[in-house]
């Protein structure tokens, strides 16, 4: 396979595609006003569900992803029902608590999850990194396709109305809980898919890795960098963030300084492109068109 030329390239592809899925999933929930600080919860249950069902039943990766996504969707729907009408910061804190709670449960149930020592995938089930990369890329494409399809339905209207004013939206017949359950189930399934595939690449999972706060943060960087609430923005942002972090790592070495440069670049981007890179491109486009029209 041409793209599987080196281990490094596989690593990049897997990281980039998983970041795209996380960004798209996070942005989907955010577009309805549901700001998640617990995306690692979906990622984590996806990882565990894939590994545990595979090890128990000897399932190959593609099959193990089905229970992973189901569990992710179930967790999303459950989150929507439990949080009820919580909005904004209250919803965000509830998601943070969910992720942290799941991490503690994973540590406390060693018989089931392997506890703090973690758990390995049955080596016979593991596949080549290029296959893992291919599945992750397909997943990323499907997740983009799904959000594009949603943007062409009435859901797109309900989401934006809920984000702006959930109370007023109700007077137009929008039933918030329906859409909350739907959107969080979908976002949960997406993030769980990414978590499930990623664990196949590493072959090992422990509670700290599965429910890592960094996953939550990375999920938000893409949309913020690329352009929140847009279709293209999270994709551009996720790819750009991977590019930035890899470039910083290669040029400045793995430690300290590279991370600092990466962080500074992110802050600058967010400061000077408040609508993200995609928002900046659109602005330039309208500016250019106006200039041309002005000259005519």
């Amino acid at each position: 396979m041409p793209f599987a030329a080196t281990a490094v390239v596989n690593d990049w592809i897997i990281t980039a595609a998983s970041m795209v899925i996380l960004a798209v999933s996070w942005n989907l929930a955010a577009s309805a006003g549901l700001i998640s600080l617990g995306h690692s919860a979906f990622w984590g249950v996806g990882s565990y569900a894939a590994v545990l069902t595979a090890n128990k039943l000897g399932l190959p990766l593609v099959v193990a992803l089905i229970p992973a996504m189901l569990i992710g969707a179930l967790l999303g729907a459950l989150l929507a029902l439990i949080t009820g009408r919580l909005r904004g910061i209250f919803f965000a804190i509830a998601t943070l608590a969910l992720s942290e709670g799941l991490r503690v449960i994973a540590v406390m149930t060693p018989g089931f999850t392997g506890g703090g020592e973690g758990i390995y995938i049955n080596p016979e089930l593991r596949i080549g990194a290029h296959w893992v990369a291919a599945i992750m890329v397909v997943g990323a494409l499907i997740s983009i396709l799904v959000t594009w399809m949603i943007s062409r339905t009435s859901w797109h209207f309900a989401f934006r109305a809920m984000r702006a004013n959930e109370s007023a939206a109700q007077m137009l017949g929008v039933r918030p809980i329906t859409f909350r359950v739907g959107i969080l189930a979908l976002a949960g399934a997406m993030a769980a898919f990414a978590g499930g595939v990623r664990v196949w690449y590493g072959g090992f999972i422990d509670p700290g890795m599965a429910f890592d706060l960094q996953i939550t943060i990375l999920a938000q960087i893409g949309p913020l960098l690329g352009g929140i609430y847009t279709l293209v923005g999270p994709v551009i942002g996720a790819l750009l963030s991977v590019l930035l972090s890899e470039a910083a790592r290669i040029w400045f070495g793995a430690q300290g300084f590279g991370l600092l440069v990466y962080g500074v670049a992110l802050v600058l981007c967010i400061l000077f492109l408040p609508h993200g890179v995609w928002g900046g491109v659109l602005q330039l486009w309208t500016y250019g068109r106006r200039r041309i029209r002005g000259k005519q």
């Binding site: 009435s154 209207f157 309900a158 934006r160 109305a161 939206a169």
Partner: peptide, 11 residues
Amino acid sequence: DNVITGALFAR
């Protein structure tokens, strides 16, 4: 789009 939202879900 504001008005379309009104038309979409009210029935």
